[in-house]
């Protein structure tokens, strides 16, 4: 976990320039031996690092979570669905870890599942009752895969009926 506020200079790659003290340095250099060709066109700026002229910075008007592996927010970013609620708290926790850590990804997976539940409450709060039949695209299941649809519906109905029966019987006992 990276806890410190990382500064841009911490990311600087000090390559050095003079390798003349290393006997044989570069004698077998072969620019054509590049497995990234042709996806990557090498330029003279290849090793200059984080020095390009950056585009203008998009104003940060919502909370944007940033990877700890970069020193700044990129010039543009998406500002949709900023973190909120319990899922948002989990996302903030996740972003304290690097991208190579499970600490980064597993809380995000959990936050996504919690976000789904929060979304249901959000819908209900807005007076919107989710139409699960339409959201799951079940019209097409009925149209193209009717046998499976009927079978699954029957199994689900039986399971629900069984659960209700079990619950009510225990209560009576």
């Amino acid at each position: 976990m990276i806890g410190d506020e990382t500064k841009p200079e911490d990311f600087r790659n000090k390559r050095g320039g003079d390798h003349s003290h290393i006997k044989g340095w570069g004698v077998d250099r072969d620019p054509k031996n590049d497995p990234t060709y042709p996806m990557k066109h090498r330029t003279d700026e290849e090793i200059e690092g984080y020095t390009w002229e950056r585009p203008e910075q998009q104003p940060v008007t919502v909370e944007v979570l940033k990877s700890v592996e970069r020193p700044n927010i990129p010039a543009v970013f998406g500002n949709t669905v900023p973190p909120s609620g319990l899922s948002g708290a989990l996302r903030r926790l996740a972003f304290k870890y690097s991208e190579s850590s499970y600490g980064r990804w597993l809380p995000l997976v959990m936050a996504d599942r919690i976000g789904e539940i929060e979304g249901i409450f959000e819908d209900l709060g807005n007076g919107h009752i989710p139409n699960l039949f339409a959201e799951h695209g079940l019209k097409s299941e009925w149209k193209y895969n009717r046998k499976n649809f009927v079978l699954k519906s029957a199994v689900t109905a039986a399971a629900i009926a069984g659960a209700i029966l079990l619950f009510t019987r225990k209560k009576k006992d």
Binding site: H41, R42, R54, R70, P74, F77, G78
Partner: peptide, 30 residues
């Protein structure tokens, strides 16, 4: 791909790896 055209990666035509479009991950572009 969302690509700035100015960063070291875009200049190498790695437009899928732009470094000025994704705050959340350094592995993925925008």
């Amino acid at each position: 791909n969302i690509a700035c055209g100015k960063c070291a990666f875009c200049k190498q035509e790695l437009y899928g790896q732009c470094h000025e479009a994704n705050p959340q991950s350094t592995a993925a572009g925008g």
